[in-house]
């Protein structure tokens, strides 16, 4: 009978343990910095639940007329920013993606530009734009479009770069122009992905347009923030519920469309 130990893998499972230790230490350090106390977290849970269930629920249905207009605005802003953003992003992505770029210089510049737009949250953009343009829907819309262009340019570029290059080669071989190449070789292949990304962006924008209202971007966010500040939690709850319903509806719609086009 052999007595030596028979390992299950060739490499030692050291990496797993290093990973576990790193995650554990990170938890401790970040917990310390953010003054997070696990025990405290468990202690407040009953209170929070109680707070939500007694102060927020039941939602005040009578508040609906007060925020109905701004809820619609929120939805409109999400739609307008998504469609505008998608159009701009498509142009930028075609200029930027490897198979379709007219000049490599575009590639670098647009990538950097999109990265700048998307790595600053829409809410921060709203804050930055408010001093120049004043509070209101215009600013909110601008912030949403900026964020959408940042996100979608990246996703669209990746989708275009993933296509099968054979189609483009064929177009080039028969002497097709640049436009013909786009129409015949590029777009047909990536349209489902582009539509899918646009729908995803719409889902994001519905939520984002809710919260930019909190800093003066128009829409229902302002109503939620102010009712909570005034302790009219049941009014806020109704608005939050309305947002949740809209979000779930958009998700449902986008899932259905996605299944059909894929």
């Amino acid at each position: 009978m052999q007595l030596e130990y028979l390992p299950l893998r060739k490499e030692k499972s050291l990496y797993t343990w290093i990973g576990v230790i790193i995650v554990g230490l990170t938890t401790l350090v970040t917990g310390y910095i953010s003054e997070f106390d696990v025990l405290e977290a468990f202690r407040v849970i009953p209170g929070v639940l109680n707070f939500i269930f007694t102060d927020f629920l039941p939602p005040a249905v009578k508040a609906v007329p007060d925020f109905w207009g701004s809820l619609l605005d929120t939805v409109y802003m999400a739609i307008v920013s998504t469609v505008t953003g998608a159009t701009i992003s498509l142009i930028l992505a075609l200029l930027c993606a490897t198979p379709t770029t007219p000049h490599p210089l575009f590639k670098v510049t647009i990538r950097a530009f999109a990265s700048l737009l998307r790595n600053i949250p829409a809410l921060a953009w709203t804050i930055i734009l408010v001093p120049a343009f004043g509070i209101g829907k215009t600013v909110g819309l601008m912030a949403l479009i900026i964020g959408s262009v940042g996100d979608m340019t990246r996703f669209f570029t990746e989708s275009i770069e993933e296509i099968d290059l054979g189609g483009i080669e064929a177009m080039r071989a028969v002497g097709g122009s640049y436009w013909l190449m786009l129409k015949g070789g590029v777009l047909p292949q990536c349209v489902p992905a582009l539509v899918s990304w646009t729908l995803y962006n719409l889902e994001l924008n519905i939520r984002a347009s809710t919260i930019i209202g909190m800093v003066g971007g128009g829409g229902i966010g302002f109503f939620i923030l102010s009712t909570i500040k005034l302790f009219r939690y049941d009014h806020a709850a109704m608005a939050i519920l309305a947002v949740a319903i809209v979000v779930l509806f958009v998700e449902f719609l986008s899932k259905n469309i996605r299944e059909r086009i894929m």
Binding site: M1, Q2, L3, Y5, L6, L8
Partner: peptide
């Protein structure tokens, strides 16, 4: 946690 006995391991082998 993959704590198979030495016997099991060699048996598997």
């Amino acid at each position: 946690f993959d704590l198979y006995s030495k016997e099991d391991r060699w048996n598997a082998y």
